[in-house]
Design a protein around this nucleic acid. Sequence first.
RNA 1: GCCGGAGUGGCGGAACCGGUAGACGCGCCGGACUCAAAAUCCGGUGGGCGCAAGCCCGUGUGGGUUCGAGUCCCACCUCCGGCACCA
Length: 812
Amino acid sequence: MSETSTRRDYEPVTIERRWQERWAESGLYKTDEDMSKPKHYALTMLPYPSGDLHVGHWYAMTPSDTRARFMRMRGYRVFFPIGFDAFGLPAENAAINRGIHPYKWTMSNIENMRGQLRQMGAMFDFDSEVVTCDPEYYRWNQWFFLKFYEKGLAYRKEVPVDWCPRDNTTLAREQVVGPDRRCERCGTPVIRKNLTQWLFKITDYADELLDFSRIEWPERVKTLQTNWIGRSEGAEIEFEVEGYGPITVFTTRPDTLFGATFFVMSPEHPAVEKITTPEREAEVKAYVEKASRMTEIDRTDVTREKTGVFTGAYAVNPANGERIPVFIADYVLMGYGTGAIMAVPAHDERDFEFARKYGVEIRTVIAPPGWDGEELSEAYVGEGRMVNSGPFDGTPNEEGKERVTSWLEERGVGRAAVTYRLRDWLISRQRYWGTPIPIVYCDECGTVPVPEEDLPVLLPQDADFVPTGESPLKRDPGFYNTECPRCGGPATRETDTMDTFVDSSWYQYRYLSPHYDEGPFDPERGKRWLPVDQYTGGIEHAVMHLLYTRFWTKVMRDLGLVDFDEPMLRLFNQGIILGEDAEKMSKSRGNVVNPQEFVDRYGSDALRCFLMFIGPWDQGGPWDGRGIEGVSRWLRRSLSLTADGASDAEADPSELERRTHRLVKKVTGDLESFRFNTSIAALMEHTSYLLAVRDEVEGERWGEALRIFVRVLAPFAPHHAEEMWAEMGETYSVHEQAWPEWDESLIAEEEITLIVQVNGKLRDRVSAPAGISEEAARDLALKSPKVRAHVEGRELRKSVYVPGRLVNLVVG
RNA sequence: GCCGGAGUGGCGGAACCGGUAGACGCGCCGGACUCAAAAUCCGGUGGGCGCAAGCCCGUGUGGGUUCGAGUCCCACCUCCGGCACCA
């Protein structure tokens, strides 16, 4: 029977289903607990249960699976769990639109997606699955909240918050994106509100979060987080405001203090009302009023002309005792530093613009190179020597920063200070579908945490969850009204729920023991598996999830729950898979690729391999519907390798061996560094070679070469490799086989192709023995007629020899 | 404006340490099989000149370093991502 006729009815879907069943029956992917092996905790970001796995999930998860399988074959015990990030807005919105309860909607989606995940053929250990909307899970969100509260890391405060008018809830600052400040979820521009909200004190960890020395993460993420935290070093300086008292400013330029010719406060600064003189009151009030009505977008528009009003008050510059006018202006933000600044127009562009407009003195105190004493035509922000600065004249300004700071310190009017851009994490959400915050308010006892033993505070099933701007839980009397755990008197519950980023901040710990009920995770399991060795997921979480989970782990360490500092040692960010039109996939564009269609037609392995083949994983790229055909063709062709061939043994056996070992080396190196695309290219190339020599290789050697090939293929195309392995009569399962080793000495070739260049230009390729000497190589090169044509009649000045590769003849 | 990243055939991409530019795949062209088509298989495929051997050009642009540059350095252009009145 010819190979084409046996393969004509090749049906990947049938084969794949069969193996998936066999794998499940035999428990092939139950987590290996053999403690004699080194551990490898591989984690892929958990999906939101939106209903169906889209091609983006495949793009994120199947290469992660390939990597995990590779580690398993290399002798690690691998933990590769999966779960569902099940709280959040889409469930509620779907519920509102279709009248289904969010719980039902979410659970049926999860059920559906579990099946789809199995179809991927990934080695997920489904026994460790976590569903974050399960009380068994969110109970521990509440437990953590109480621990944070005890440590003073959870607090409630009236703060200006970003409010999404469409989703009817507050957002964390990280969840407001773009220059026009839109909601990260729905794209609606956010508005400002003042609300009393719960926050987590992530700023306590700002400095530690800037330290990436213990993790191998992409530079990109480290930079994004560093910028987001935005550490600025400088000084706090107290300015005495006449008739009021000291007001503190923050500056990064204490060296320019002598040039502070005016003082500016944010319109929201609490002292504004008190310092304003009666004759300026009306104007100041009007300005404050106007500023408060302005949207955040207009307020922070850099291109807007600076405005402000004089308060009538004067402050004293502590450096030189000069009286300087106090203004309010909306370019000073209450949310950064102290909400007040010393304005140095000569050395700050904003202050310069303001001073020009309002006729304030612009006094140079840092001399630009070659400065002749005249007034500057624009702010000079560069380096220079201090001038007009009393005792500091002549000091280089960088040195001046420290000297002025200690001078202020000695006089008790200033100190070195650090300010961050990072704000505390606002976790309150006015929505139903989230973890209730375990706090009770009692008239007698005030704010009372729910005792640990009363957890979980269950989310009521029958609440009316339509959002109105207030938490739906407030309208549920059964939930809202309760007893004070302290005095037993009547009390009410906190009705806000937690940001869903709380759920994903620690899920990697819960996976270890999803049903453990004495703590968030079983410490014994933790010792075996923590921390996560390799995390994979999208870059979009750089300053949200990836920052929160680092914060969370540091708090867990300080709570004595873990003994390490970082949750994930290594991180790899995959790119985004785009539509065929190279645009982001979206329903409105109609360019969404449904993976199911391709699974049904070509099989999971073809889809997996195609997604890995498309390009570098961190780059993403457009989907190419025809490209998958090529991958499918390759897999089908490779299947015929297992059919018996003739055994005339004509092919060069060392060539087969060399290529096989070279393949192992190549794929091993590529998989170590996530280069799936070139791995697949090498596998394809090797397949073509094997097909070409198949009838010319003696049986034993052929079998050995093929066993290596199939094992190397296994992480990429797990079903396909399993099928080939079985057809070869090998014992189940290929996925329990060891990753093949390669022998460097077998890779080396005896004959090399020597490149011959003349003046750096390629002129010929000649065959030469591998260890050829420089002299011999040069002589060989000079014998080539092609080379001679370029050398003849010219002087050979020198030659460059790269052993085993090339010889370059330099002629004049 | 500031901070990252990237520009290579018709397309996705490869070239990992400065040493054969374009691996692998798609597409396209030609051939085999077929009554025919699909599928499959074989061959070709950066551009220009040439019958050919071969020669010249070619990795966003311009310069530089080097025996040799897609790769290193300088300047610039374009695109993508992030931040942005942060004192």
